[in-house]
Design a protein around this nucleic acid. Structure first.
Length: 573
RNA sequence: CGGGGCGUGGCGCAGCCUGGUUAGCGCGCCUGCCUUGGGAGCAGGAGGUCGGAGGUUCGAAUCCUCUCGCCCCGACCA
């Protein structure tokens, strides 16, 4: 294709609205333009990259035995009523009423629709397993869209749904998808990790997230330096260690701690370590207060807490609410004599003779012991993992790193098939619900994360498999007949060979073409200019390494083809 | 929704505090000349009723009120 004819509105300056690098570069490189908050147009170059990712996804999904279909984006409310999510889903679900006063929504995900399709059309174990996917625009009315394509309200997603007859089969399907996802992201040239994850609101029992490693990622993930363990911090388990032998319980002591509210201040004042203090936090879970006990140096992992409480919504109380619930100002709370539901982190069970607030302003209690002085209603692993923790799998050192979630696979079990009464007859003639799984990939986000991971001061550096073009051919002097003829004939040759090449045939100075070529990140830059007329040479430059080689006009075509093949091989699986 | 910030030609910004005639600059765009290996130079030109509405005033980009949009931090998630 010709640069002169494509809509590639590159920008010299970064638009003020863009904060992170991928967003800035996609705007500058003319890949996307914003229409409204979280809603973008994909311009020709951006769309080409997206299509590349889609194609890889398609190939791997098909190879894994899944079938492509396309489901409606507009969905009737009835189905969502049936699954119970019409109430549950909240404002992210964009709802509207049509001319017949029927309520509908824009599909944020398609469990309901696919389950309905399958329950109406699949009735026997003989038809299973079945795995259906689509690549489609989704709409989620995000509270706060941001970072360009990274968190848009409208975005392109591949979503797949599997239906199996048995748990064992469902497990096999899950593994197949896990494998396909590894292949997909490897083929996209991304550096990523699959991590254990919380299954969130989609519901289900078991899940993994595929995280592209990037500092601007919105998620923190925990990775073991020694073994394969990797998890989202929402899920990362604290290593289970034995509860120490009981020690002698010292007599309870009430002590004045005037104005000492923060853990740090209390510890300094009493000359103790945070490891020997238990802090008490008051949360509201679906409107009801609950006290959470945690070792002084630990932080709550709210998703773990939410799962333990089985609540739809939890939040930390503010100072006023805390006082209303407990009669004690924040900073002096403790479990002794507290008349609230009390849950404790596992680590608290291992402590003895510790310090807590006395539920009285300016006082703390020392030598507190669970059992003797208070009881807890429930205990669980509730805290955020830190780099000081050890791997729950092998005991190795852990590393915390940032990641962008580009894929997520879930075992759904029978959550949806039961709700929607989607059943089949097994080999005994028994009617049982399908065992489901669902598998998503953020396609547009994948392109953005690739840029997040691969760029330099000059612009994007695309991995070859998802670059909008494989090569960009610069005609550095469109007014020179010899150069133009050579560039045009090489362009034809490459195009005939099936290479995706963009020829920069604009009547511009070389500097502009170099800058634009770097900015849009095409992996190979072929330059036809002065050195052709002077030395008979054409140069080929590698965008990533910056290495440039000179070849004769005759060998140029073959060399480029060979370089592309070599680079593609690196991302093959 | 809570907290912070911003809306002035396509992009980046100044002007606003302390109202005053034709609203300015850089880039981009158009024409001509010139130039062609890292975003050149010269000359000429087009393009903005200053997000919108109302108000104060002889006079509003500037002051006041309301409103809309956008961005950042938090709850959400591919």
């Amino acid at each position: 294709m010709r640069f002169s004819q494509l809509l590639i509105p590159t920008l010299k300056e970064t638009p003020a609205e863009a904060e992170i690098i991928s967003h800035q570069l996609m705007l500058r490189a003319g890949f996307i333009r914003k229409l409204a908050s979280g809603i973008y147009s994909y311009l020709p170059l951006g769309l080409r990259s997206i299509r590349k990712v889609e194609q890889i996804v398609r190939e791997e999904m098909n190879k894994a035995g899944a079938q492509e279909l396309l489901l409606p984006m507009v969905q009737p409310s009835d189905l969502w009523q049936e699954s119970g999510r019409w109430q549950k889903y909240g404002p992210e679900l964009l709802r509207f009423t049509d001319r017949h006063k029927r309520e509908s929504c824009l599909g944020p995900t398609h469990e309901e629709v696919i389950t309905d399709l399958v329950r109406k059309n699949v009735h026997s174990y003989r038809s299973l397993p079945i795995n259906l996917y689509q690549i489609q625009t989704k709409f989620r009315d995000e509270i706060r869209p941001r970072f360009g394509l990274m968190r848009g309200r409208e975005f392109i997603m591949k979503d797949a749904y599997s239906f199996d007859a048995t748990d064992i089969d469902a497990g096999l399907t899950y593994e197949k998808m896990n494998d396909a996802y590894h292949r997909i992201f490897k083929r996209c040239g991304l550096s990523f990790r699959a991590v254990e994850a919380d299954s969130g609101t989609i519901g289900g029992s078991y899940s993994h997230e595929f995280m592209v490693l990037a500092d601007t990622g919105e998620d923190t993930i925990v990775v073991c330096r020694e073994c394969s363990y990797a998890a989202n911090t929402e899920k990362a388990r604290a290593m289970e260690t034995p509860i120490p032998e009981p020690v002698e319980q010292l007599p309870l002591k009430k002590i004045e701690t005037p104005g000492k509210r923060k853990v740090k201040a209390v510890c300094e004042f009493l000359d103790i370590f945070p490891e020997n203090l238990v802090k008490t936090l008051i949360y509201v879970a679906d409107g009801k207060p609950v006290a959470v006990l945690l070792r002084g140096d630990h932080e709550v992992q709210e998703v773990k807490l939410q799962n333990l409480l089985g609540a739809d919504e939890i939040r930390l109380t503010d100072d006023k609410e805390t006082f209303d619930f407990t009669g004690t100002p924040t900073g002096y709370l403790g479990p002794v004599g507290l008349h609230l539901r009390i849950v404790a982190d596992l680590e608290v069970l291992k402590m003895a003779n510790f310090t807590v607030g006395a539920n009285e302003k300016n006082f703390h209690l020392q030598n507190v012991n669970r059992g003797r002085d208070f009881t807890v209603d429930e205990t669980a692993d509730l805290r955020m993992i830190t780099e000081k923790d050890r791997c729950p799998q092998c005991g190795g050192e852990l590393e915390l790193t940032r990641g962008i979630e580009v894929g997520h696979i879930f075992k759904l079990g029978t959550t949806y098939s039961e709700a929607l009464k989607a059943t089949f007859l097994d080999d005994q003639g028994q009617e049982i619900p399908f065992i489901m799984g669902c598998y998503g990939i953020g396609v547009s986000r994948t392109v953005a994360s690739s840029i997040e991971q691969n760029h330099d001061k000059d612009g994007i550096i695309f991995p070859l498999p998802i670059a909008p073009f494989q090569a960009i051919l610069l005609n550095l002097s469109t007014r020179d007949k010899e150069i133009t003829a050579a560039a045009e004939s090489l362009y034809e040759e490459l195009t005939k060979q099936g290479i995706e090449v963009l020829i920069d045939d604009r009547d511009e100075r070389p500097g502009i073409k170099f800058k634009d070529a770097d900015l849009i990140g095409i992996p190979f830059r072929v330059m036809v200019g002065k050195s052709l007329t002077k030395e008979g040479k054409i140069e080929i430059r590698d965008r990533k390494s910056g290495e440039t080689i000179s070849v004769t006009q005759q060998e140029a075509g073959d060399r480029i083809k060979q370089m592309i093949e070599t680079a593609m091989a690196e991302c093959r699986v």
